[in-house]
C-alpha cells in the first residue's frame, strides 16, 4: 500500500492472547501518543473466515473494538498462519515491511523476552538504533532507562534509522482516550524462508493457579530464605490471593527449593515493577533489589532489622513473617467483612 501517513505515525505492536489485548498494549498506545499518532499493528495467526485453529474474524473484530475503546484510529492488520508457527521471525519481517512501507517516526513494543528479540532483529534489519526496558518517553524522543539494578537513571536518544523502543511493562500509566471507530488497513505480509528457521513445536503453560502474571501483576508478594519451608509459601499465596497479586521468590528461595524457579525475582530472574511489593523474609541482596526496587510501594517483613531490604522499605515490620502474615490476612478479611 502507498504511504499516505503523516510523518508522525508511530507503530505500536499489539500483544494479544485469545482475543484480548494485554494491559501493556494500552501502555504502549499512551507512550506512542507522546511521539505522534499511534497506528497499532495487529498480527494474527489464521486467515480470514477461518473458524477454528487460527483467529476468526470475530477475534479480529473483538481486538479492533478494544483498540477503538483505547482511542486508536488506525489499525494495521496482517494475518498469517505462520505468526504462531515460528519463533519471532515472522513478526520481525512483518514489522520490517511496515517500517519500509509506512516510514513511521518510531516503533514501540513491549520489553518482554519476545518483544526484545523482535526489537533487536528489527534494528538490524532496518539499520536502526534501539532502546530496551524504557521506563519513560519524552516528546523529543529521549527515553529513560534504569541501569545497574536500578541504581541510576539514564536518558538516551536514538540517532540512527527508525527509533525502536521496547517499553518496560507497568512503567507507563495508560491514559483514557475518547473511543473511536478504528480504520483497519489490511496488509499482505511476505515472509522469506529465513522466517521459518525456528519452529515452535508446542507451548506449554505450567500450572500457576489463578494468579496474575508475575511481570504484569500490580501486587507481588515475595518470599526469601526466611520463609523457611516450602509449605510456608502458602501464607504468601493466601495473602497474594486476597490482594489479587502474584507470588514471587528470591534466588535464595528458588535455589533452596522453597518455590519454583519460574517465580524468581531479581537480576537473574524476572524484573517486576508493581504498585505494591511485599518482601517477606528477603534480606535484599543487590541482585534481588535489581528486580524489584522500581516498585511503587515496598513493604518489608523480616526478623533481622539489619537486612538491607529495610533501606528501601516504605513500610517495614521487624518480626517473624509466620506471625505477621496470618495477622495481616485476618486484618484484611475483617476489613473486607466490615
Amino acid at each position: 500500500m502507498s504511504s499516505d501517513n503523516v510523518a508522525t505515525e508511530v507503530l505500536v505492536l499489539a500483544e494479544h492472547t485469545d482475543g484480548t489485548l494485554s494491559k501493556t498494549t494500552a501502555e504502549l498506545i499512551t507512550a506512542a501518543r507522546i511521539l505522534g499518532e499511534p497506528a497499532v499493528v495487529l498480527l494474527v495467526s489464521g486467515s480470514s473466515g477461518e473458524a477454528s485453529g487460527g483467529s476468526s474474524d470475530a477475534t479480529v473484530d473483538a481486538l479492533c473494538a478494544q483498540l477503538g475503546e483505547l482511542g486508536v484510529a488506525h489499525v494495521v492488520l496482517a494475518r498469517s498462519p505462520e505468526f504462531g508457527l515460528y519463533l519471532v521471525t515472522p513478526v520481525v519481517q512483518a514489522l520490517a515491511q511496515l517500517v519500509r512501507e509506512r516510514k513511521p517516526a518510531a516503533v514501540l513494543l513491549t520489553a518482554s523476552a519476545d518483544g526484545k528479540e523482535v526489537a533487536g532483529r528489527l534494528a538490524v534489519l532496518t539499520g536502526s538504533g534501539l532502546l530496551t526496558d524504557v521506563t519513560e518517553l519524552h516528546g523529543d524522543g529521549t527515553a529513560t532507562q534504569e541501569i545497574f539494578a536500578g541504581s541510576a537513571i539514564v536518558a538516551s536518544r536514538i540517532i540512527t534509522g527508525t527509533p525502536i523502543y521496547a517499553i518496560r511493562r507497568n512503567a507507563i500509566t495508560s491514559q483514557l482516550a475518547v473511543p473511536v471507530q478504528p480504520e483497519v488497513h489490511t496488509v499482505e505480509v511476505l515472509l522469506s524462508a529465513s522466517a521459518r528457521a525456528s519452529r515452535i513445536l508446542d507451548s506449554v503453560v505450567e500450572p500457576k493457579g489463578n494468579r496474575p502474571e508475575l511481570t504484569e501483576a500490580s501486587v507481588v508478594v515475595a518470599g526469601g530464605r526466611g520463609v523457611g519451608r516450602a509449605e510456608d509459601f502458602q501464607l504468601l499465596e493466601q495473602l497474594a490471593d486476597q490482594l489479587g497479586g502474584a507470588v514471587g521468590a528470591s534466588r535464595a528461595a528458588t535455589d533452596g527449593g522453597l518455590y519454583p524457579h519460574q517465580f524468581q525475582v531479581g537480576q537473574t530472574g524476572k524484573s517486576v515493577s508493581p504498585q505494591l511489593y511485599i518482601a517477606c523474609g528477603i534480606s535484599g541482596a543487590i541482585q534481588h533489589r535489581a528486580g524489584m526496587q522500581t516498585a511503587k510501594n515496598i513493604v518489608v517483613i523480616n526478623s533481622d532489622s539489619t537486612s538491607p531490604i529495610f533501606d528501601i522499605a516504605d513500610f517495614g515490620i521487624v518480626g517473624d513473617l509466620h506471625e505477621v502474615l496470618p495477622q495481616t490476612i485476618t486484618a484484611l478479611r475483617e476489613r473486607a467483612g466490615s
Partner: peptide, 10 residues
C-alpha cells in the same frame, strides 16, 4: 517463557 515453556526446533 513467563507461563511455562515452548519447545523450539531448528
Amino acid at each position: 517463557t513467563e507461563t511455562g515453556y515452548q519447545t523450539i526446533q531448528a
